[in-house]
Design a protein around this nucleic acid. Structure first.
Lengths: 195, 195
DNA sequence: TCAGACTCTGACCGATCGGTCAGTTCATCG
DNA sequence: CGATGAACTGACCGATCGGTCAGAGTCTGA
C-alpha cells in the first residue's frame, strides 16, 4: 500500500489546505487531515515533523513574496514607499488569497508561532509604508484599516478573477490612502513598482 | 467565604474580559479565568451556564446596538443606506472597541455559535448598505474591506480617544466608499442618523 | 432552633488534542 | 536469497478541555 513519498506528501498537503479552509487551523485536527487523505494520523506525522510544519510548508510561497516586498521597501520613504507598499500588498493579497482564506481570522495567534516570528515585524514596516511613514493618527488608522481589510476581502472573494479584484482594490487604496506631505523633496521613483 | 452573588458574577465577567483580550476566546480556558478571579472553575460554571454564556453576556451591549443599527437600516437604499450604515458602524466600532479587541480574529468561528446565529445575517445586510446596495464588484469589495478593517483598527487603537478615532474613520469611509448612482431619486433623509 | 436556599468547592468525567513508538509491510539491491 | 531502509500503522501517552456532581459552609427567615 506504500505510495511514492512525494505522492502522499502532496496529498496530505492538499487535504490540509482543504480542511484548514473550512474549519481553520486550530479547528482542524491531524486526525481530520488523515481521514481526508485516507491514511493514519501517524502517517501525517511521518511526513511532517508536526502540525506547525504542515502549515509552514503551506504558507511558504506567500511568505517568500512577503519578504521580497519587505526588502523592496527598505530605504523608501513617503509617497514612494506608499506606492510600492500599495501595489505590492494588493498583488500579494490577490495572488495568495486562497492561502489567506485558510487562516481566516487566526493570524494573531498564528503569528505567535516560532515559524512566523518575523512576520510581525514585516507587517509593522508595511503598515508604516502604507501610512507614508507619517505620524498623523489619521494616516496610521487608514493604513491599518486597509491592511486588515484587504486580506479579508480577498479571502471572501476567492472566486472573483484576479484582473477584476486587483484593480478594484488598487482604486480603493488610491482613494483611501492619506496623501503624504512630501517632507523630503523626493522624486516619485516609480520605476521599480512593477518589478 | 461566600461573597454577594453580584460581586463574584461581576468579577468573573471582568476577569474573562481581561483574559479574552490577551489570549482570545478559544485560547482562554475556564481554569484561566477561575485562577484570575481566585475561585474554582466550578464556581465560574455556577455563575454562568457555560463558556459561551460568559461570552454572550460580555458582548450583549454591543450586540444590542448592532441590532438597533440593523433596524434603522431596514427600508433604506442607496446613498441614504450608505450614510446611516457608515455613521452607525463607525460609531459602533469605536464605542465597543474593547469588546471587539476581545475577539481579535475569532469572529468567523464565534459567529457559528448558536448565541450569535443572527449576527451573520445582520452583517450581510450591513455590507449591502455599505455598498449602497450596488451589485458592482468594486462597490462590494470596498464595502468588505472597510467592514473588516474598521473593527480591526478600532481594536488596535484602543488607547486613541473616541473623538480622534471617530472622525478619522468617517473621513476614511467617505473617501473610500464608492459613490452610489442614485437609481431612485431619493431625498437624503439624514434626520435619524444621530438618534 | 432548624429547614431551606444560596454560594462555593474538590474530585471526577468523557472527549479530544498533538505527538511517540515499536513493529509490520514491501520494494530494492548486493 | 537475505539484508536494508523507506513507508506506514495501531496502540498508546500525557495534557488539557468544558462540564457534572455530591456535598460542605454560610446566611436568612419562619
Amino acid at each position: 500500500m506504500a505510495r511514492a513519498v512525494s505522492e502522499t506528501h502532496g496529498e496530505i498537503l492538499a487535504a490540509a489546505a482543504r480542511r484548514f479552509a473550512v474549519t481553520g487551523y486550530r479547528g482542524t485536527s491531524l486526525q481530520d487531515i488523515a481521514r481526508e487523505v485516507g491514511c493514519s494520523k501517524a502517517t501525517v506525522l511521518y511526513h511532517f515533523a508536526n502540525k506547525e510544519a504542515l502549515l509552514a510548508e503551506l504558507m511558504a510561497p506567500a511568505i517568500a513574496v512577503l519578504r521580497d516586498l519587505d526588502d523592496r521597501l527598505t530605504g523608501l520613504t513617503g509617497a514612494a514607499a506608499q506606492q510600492v507598499a500599495a501595489v505590492g500588498f494588493v498583488d500579494l493579497a490577490v495572488r495568495f488569497r486562497r492561502e489567506i482564506a485558510l487562516l481566516r481570522g487566526e493570524f494573531p495567534e498564528l503569528l505567535a508561532q516560532p515559524a512566523f516570528a518575523h512576520i510581525q515585524q514585516i507587517s509593522e514596516r508595511l503598515r508604516d509604508a502604507f501610512a507614508g511613514h507619517s505620524e498623523r493618527p489619521g494616516a496610521r488608522i487608514s493604513a491599518l484599516v486597509l491592511l486588515a481589510g484587504i486580506p479579508e476581502a480577498c479571502a471572501e472573494f476567492v472566486d472573483v478573477p484576479d484582473d477584476e479584484l486587483r484593480p478594484a482594490l488598487l482604486t480603493l487604496v488610491r482613494r483611501a490612502v492619506e496623501p503624504v506631505e512630501s517632507s523630503l523633496p523626493q522624486p516619485p521613483t516609480t520605476e521599480d513598482k512593477e518589478s
